[in-house]
């Protein structure tokens, strides 16, 4: 059960600290949990795990493919590894290792890809991923999550640590605005209806859920009544909630810090089309573009991923 944050303007802790704290809590509960880094321990603060659990932190150096393989090998011996590097190097660079040494071999790896999409900031185009969820969704049995805030991240990490299989979580390293009250709980494969409206349905994931709620409030002031659904679990998608909420709406808009190919938008498109929902869909995401440098706020504007951009998309879609 979840409760919406009383103050949505307030930011939580930095998500990298939340990740480290969550992994340490999982380590305390379960001796099978270990953490692996690819020389970004300063950036992820995984070095703090090394201080608290020196024997259960494994520095793999700048060798991401090897890190995923080491994690897979440890899994075959009963361990539950968490790995970290930046989003593109956690997925695109090591896709075959995740796919074969991990998923195909029935191993367990919890993969944290940090700073997806516009969160990349000054690390720029080489470090940007708009396709990590597309890749990870294509792996049979994988769970793919894009948490909205720190509360959701804590819940996901705690649950991932208990499960077997390939699990991906993408998130900003920095702090993001709260969507949920601490202690809220969730369910993989279940979306959260955050606002019930009658005209359009906005389906969002990740830190853009906050922007989606902002957009819905702005639209309400202009007489447009929107539902907002948080699908933090992009795979498996809560198809039932998508279809229930799409029914009777004039428009569905997906909103993600990701490319329109293979991410939330495509997942929702397939769900609506296969059910013959017959409702207009706009996939609001990044189209046919690479990343670039800039501060995250500038990048978010340049890639048209702000609440204002979403407001415009909904209004155009309804016109």
């Amino acid at each position: 059960m979840f409760t919406l944050a009383k103050d949505r303007t307030k930011k939580g802790a930095e998500l990298r600290d939340v990740m480290v704290d969550s992994i340490e809590q999982a380590m305390e509960l379960d001796e099978r949990v270990v953490a692996l880094e690819a020389d970004l321990g300063g950036a992820s603060r995984f070095t703090n795990i090394a201080k608290k659990y020196p024997r259960r932190f494994i520095q793999c150096g700048i060798a991401e493919a090897n890190m995923i393989g080491v994690a897979a090998g440890m899994s075959s011996e009963g361990y539950h590894p968490f790995t970290h590097t930046f989003g593109p190097f956690s997925t695109r660079r090591v896709f075959d290792q995740i796919f074969l040494s991990g998923a195909y071999a029935h191993n367990t790896i919890n993969i944290f890809g940090s700073d997806p999409g516009f969160c990349v900031g000054i690390n720029g185009g080489t470090h940007t991923t708009w396709e990590d969820m597309a890749l990870m969704r294509s792996i049979p049995g994988a769970i793919v999550c894009d948490p909205a805030d720190e509360t959701q991240m804590r819940w996901i990490v705690a649950e991932y640590a208990k499960l077997e299989g390939i699990h991906y979580i993408r998130a900003n390293r920095k702090d993001v605005r709260n969507v949920y009250e601490p202690g809220s709980t969730f369910e993989f494969g279940k979306g959260n209806l955050l606002r019930d409206g009658s005209d359009a349905l906005i389906i969002a994931c990740g830190q853009l859920v906050s922007e989606a709620l902002d957009a819905a409030e702005a639209l309400a002031e202009q007489g447009v009544d929107c539902s907002v659904v948080d699908t933090f679990c992009v795979k498996p998608l809560d198809e039932q909630l998508v279809l229930e909420q799409a029914a009777g709406k004039k428009l569905v808009v997906t909103f993600e810090n990701h490319g329109v190919i293979g991410g939330l938008g495509d997942a929702v498109a397939a769900t609506l089309a296969e059910a013959g929902a017959g409702v207009k869909l706009v996939r609001h995401g990044v189209k046919e573009r690479f990343g670039q440098v800039g501060d995250p706020a500038w990048l978010q504007r340049d890639f048209h991923l702000t609440a204002d951009d979403l407001v415009n998309t909904v209004k155009e879609g309804l016109s």
Binding site: I58, A65, N66, M67, I68, G69, V70, A71, A72, G73, M74, S75, S76, E77, G78, Y79, Q97, S101, A105
Partner: peptide, 11 residues
């Protein structure tokens, strides 16, 4: 090579 390295680490 990497999965064997992981097994050795685990052992």
């Amino acid at each position: 090579t990497s999965t064997a390295a992981g097994i050795a680490t685990a052992l």
